[in-house]
Design a protein around this nucleic acid. Structure first.
Lengths: 152, 152
DNA sequence: CCACAATTCCCCACGATTCCCCACTTCGTG
DNA sequence: CACGAAGTGGGGAATCGTGGGGAATTGTGG
């Protein structure tokens, strides 16, 4: 269970250091490999422990190839899913494509999201967050029904 | 299990170098031969390890010839299936027909898709991906339904 | 059957990337 | 204040990606 918010820095070589807390959690799993893929809704990256990713992968695999939308989902999510390992310093090297997809610059925001970690470019994250907060603030736009019924 | 996204370049002779990661996986199989064929739904190429292809081939064989769609799929998949070997540098030479089918230019995107690898022309891939992401974003389209039911 | 052209294959070489290691800084703790 | 743990940056070696020269082979047409 990944929980918490952290700001992390990405160095000139495209390496990101996850907080030790998460590193230990990932290591304690059966395998230390991490699967990095893209979030189809937002321009950010997801990090899954291998075991967790396999569950997601199995779900994707069952989608029919004949349907274009299903096929695309498979291709993008599975296609971008890349095995990563930690270096001696507990950092993960991200490829240029993944960094470009999420618009990652020097500073990034890392969000624990239960079964996975979410990595945003810091400024992109702040923009999104402020946008959401502004929407909630101006009560003119009612919150969607799903959210309304949740007791938080 | 092939996983991950890589950009590869295709040289003037039509050769493509697979990342070492995939090369090793392919070598570890019983045979180092790779079957290259076409994706019947998208303009891209598929690469199968020999053993995996034989499984697919057997499935295709059992499709009824009476059904036109099945017959076409069979013809295209089996017809374009070509045995390939790596050269000393770990590259595969692709024929002009295969390159034309996928519209492959200088830069290409290679996607791990479980039992096979998928090779797209780089710009064609980006176009497809962005199109799909745009559909996901506009939550009104039925496309988002595919993902809605998946808890990722 | 031969000659020519096109393709395929094997080799070498350079540049970029990746990986491994070391060093410095910062922060929290005793 | 001192110490240790964690974050950050970068040097340098090894590996990998990329391109191209030239020989061998295949195919084609006369």
């Amino acid at each position: 269970m990944f929980r918490g918010f952290f700001t992390v820095s990405i160095d000139a070589k495209g390496r990101v250091a996850l907080p030790t807390r998460f590193r230990e959690q990932l290591r304690s799993e059966t395998s230390a490999t991490v699967i990095m893929t893209v979030n189809p809704w937002d321009r950010c990256l997801w990090f899954y422990p291998l075991a967790e990713w396999e569950r997601v992968d199995a779900k994707l695999l069952s989608l029919p190839d004949g349907d274009a939308a299903s096929r695309r989902a498979k291709q993008v999510l599975r296609g971008y899913a890349t095995d990563c390992e930690f270096d001696g310093q507990g950092r993960i090297l991200m490829s240029g494509e993944h960094r470009n997809f999420a618009g990652l610059q020097h500073k990034a925001a890392l969000l624990g999201q239960g079964n996975k970690l979410e990595l945003w470019d810091a400024s992109a994250w702040e923009r999104q967050r402020d946008e959401w907060l502004a929407q909630i603030d101006s009560r003119t736009t009612p919150v969607s029904g799903v959210l309304q019924d949740l007791s938080l």
